[in-house]
């Protein structure tokens, strides 16, 4: 008997769900749960990680991310304005910078500032400064492109109206264009913060003292000291989610708000 389109759609849905269930079951059956219990889900042994992973690790991750974001936002705004400048040299510099730092792994930037700068200039910077600059430099390249898109999304008539009222170019940008651009880029900018939160883990390549440890470093240290296998990394990962999931929800909220109204 021939099926109606609706019946066919329903059967197709059941088949898809069936494949999914079978795949999960296969994965569960193939897993060596005994080894997993001692090496991945060994939560009985992670006690010593607390409260430091929370009080030091999470705190440092947040501080590094915040500092990187502040530098990245200021640098990104400068680069975005340079990229939109009528003066070609500014555009070339900004384009070169953005392409370079978006094109290389952030890890290389951390190594360059952590080990290259002391070699070149004979100065040893504080770890916080190195993170701030390394993260900030990488972030500014990404944020610059986001902000440029936001600035260009503000209709040209806004600048014309502001200039017609006698505002100089800089005043029109600061009072009229940039506030509107920021509202447009709020969701993508929040996503940049999520990326930065995760990139702050790259600090592990530097030599750190205990008070400078952030989440990933706590996780890696726990692997060697606690005898619980990879479990400490699982804990560190959970802490990242505690930060990134609310940010993600925030970005979605910004998105729906800007979709509802242009304000």
């Amino acid at each position: 008997m021939a099926m109606t389109a609706r019946q066919r759609a329903r059967v197709s849905l059941y088949v898809q769900a069936g494949i999914f269930v079978v795949a999960i079951a296969a994965l569960i059956l193939a897993t060596d749960w005994k080894t997993m219990a001692t090496n991945v889900f060994n939560f009985g042994k992670i006690g010593p990680m607390f409260p430091d992973i929370f009080l030091v690790g999470l705190k440092n991750t947040l501080i590094y991310t915040f500092l990187g974001f502040v530098v990245g936002l200021s640098g990104g705004l400068l680069l975005a304005l340079m990229k939109l400048s009528s003066f070609p040299l500014y555009r070339w510099i900004a384009t070169g910078y953005i392409e370079f730092f978006r094109g290389i792994p952030a890890l290389l930037v951390f190594i360059a500032f952590g080990y290259g700068v002391p070699l070149a200039f004979g100065v040893q910077w504080n770890v916080t400064i190195i993170v701030m600059i390394s993260l900030g430099i990488v972030a500014s390249a990404y944020i610059a492109e986001t902000l440029r898109a936001g600035l260009q999304a503000v209709p040209k008539g806004q600048l014309e109206a502001a200039r017609s009222l006698g505002m100089p170019q800089w005043r029109a940008m600061v009072t009229i264009v940039i506030p509107q651009a920021f509202k447009i880029v709020l969701p993508p900018l929040t996503n940049e913060v999520i990326l930065l939160t995760k990139d702050s883990s790259l600090i592990y390549v530097l030599g750190l003292t205990a008070s400078q440890y952030e989440l990933t470093k706590f996780g890696r240290d726990g692997i060697s000291s606690l005898g619980a296998g990879l479990t400490p990394l699982l804990v560190a990962g959970a802490f990242y989610l505690v930060v990134t999931i609310p940010l993600s929800l925030l970005a979605r909220k910004f998105e729906s708000r800007s979709a509802r109204t242009k304000r």
């Binding site: 209709p155 008539g157 109206a161 502001a162 009229i176 506030p179 509107q180 509202k183 242009k262 304000r263």
Partner: peptide, 8 residues
């Protein structure tokens, strides 16, 4: 023609 009021 397009008013160009500041929406914010």
């Amino acid at each position: 023609q397009q008013f160009n009021l500041f929406p914010h």
